[in-house]
């Protein structure tokens, strides 16, 4: 007798979020990236439509990275010393379709660049490349509240994904995203209750749930991956059952976490493996957007995604 699959039917779906505005939408991006929109748990293609594959963004900085592992630095060669050359390398050599720009140079310990200078950098980057952008601050709340409004304005109408809003500091960023037509990253510290609360708070400011991407904060393999995994799974189950306040797509900062692990730094190949395993596990718990570092790891995960979605 043929085994019958027990299929779940979900009444609701994950929001679709679009990153990057093309000409016809008032921006200047060469293409836009769509994430979310699924009506099923990850990869259960028979239960509901999954219109978009997970997407990978190359992480780039506005300065040459100071603490990156030598394997990572050598993967980009000399270009990593010049942010624009680094971006060109990602786009031209590694065919990046999405970039995640971190404004590390504004951090008081990494150059303390001012808001105008940071905004100017973003303007120039936007004029040099047509790839859609994720832009995140320097992870210093005070400084981010100074630089992000100007950066947001410099990227007005480009429909960037900007971050990261946290429970104690979301108003400035949310107001900028609202005013300048961007979408926002809502970051919670591996805590589903705070994730939900933050989405409610941001939506109260006027940004629709459809303009929020959740960063659940992940740990890499061996460093709490399973905590993030189970939180993402639980949020997804609630969202598909009808909880709109948790129905946002997930962004996972895989590269920065994977390359923190001492195992990743132990040998050249092991770092790539660490990043690949972390990313591919999170895809199975519902990650929609992965921010990654090593081009080889990105290539492998992209191949994995293609294989998964071949059906």
């Amino acid at each position: 007798m043929e085994t019958q699959l027990a299929l779940e039917k979900w009444p609701h779906e994950i929001s679709t979020v679009i990153i990057g505005a093309k000409n016809e939408h008032g921006g200047s991006r060469s293409h836009s990236i769509e994430i979310g929109g699924q009506k099923s748990l990850p990869l259960l293609f028979k239960e509901g439509v999954i219109p978009n594959k997970p997407k990978i963004a190359f992480e780039v900085w506005d300065i040459a990275p100071v603490d990156w592992d030598s394997e990572l630095v050598s993967a980009y060669g000399k270009s990593i010393k010049d942010p624009f050359a680094w971006v060109d390398k990602c786009v031209n050599d590694f065919k990046a379709e999405l970039l995640c720009l971190k404004m590390q140079g504004a951090h008081p310990d990494s150059g303390d660049k001012g808001a105008e200078e940071s905004a100017k950098f973003v303007s120039e980057l936007l004029s040099r490349t047509g790839v859609p952008l994720i832009i995140i601050g320097c992870e210093n709340d005070v400084k981010d509240n100074l630089i992000m409004p100007l950066i947001s304005e410099a990227a007005k109408k480009e429909r960037c994904l900007i971050g990261c809003a946290v429970q104690d500091n979301y108003k400035t960023l949310a107001a900028s995203a609202l005013a300048d037509g961007h979408t926002i990253i809502a970051q919670s510290p591996i805590d589903i209750n705070i994730a939900k609360q933050l989405n409610i708070l941001i939506s109260d400011i006027g940004l629709a749930f459809e303009r929020i991407v959740m960063d659940p904060t992940i740990g890499s393999l061996g460093y709490g991956l399973e905590y993030a995994y189970s939180i993402m799974e639980r949020a997804r189950l609630a969202a598909l059952s009808g909880d709109k306040s948790l129905a946002s797509p997930f962004i996972c900062f895989v590269g920065q976490e994977a390359w923190k692990a001492k195992e990743a730094k132990a040998s050249a190949n092991q770092g790539i493996i660490w990043e690949v395993i972390t990313a591919s596990s999170l895809i199975q718990s519902g990650a929609d957007l992965l921010v990654m570092r090593h081009p080889k790891a990105i290539e492998k995960v992209n191949n994995f995604i293609e294989m998964l979605y071949k059906g």
Partner: peptide, 15 residues
């Protein structure tokens, strides 16, 4: 039946 957050009453009503 629903996931807790501080504004859970409001969250329910936004459904």
């Amino acid at each position: 039946k629903n996931i807790y957050c501080d504004s859970y009453l409001e969250a329910y009503r936004k459904k």
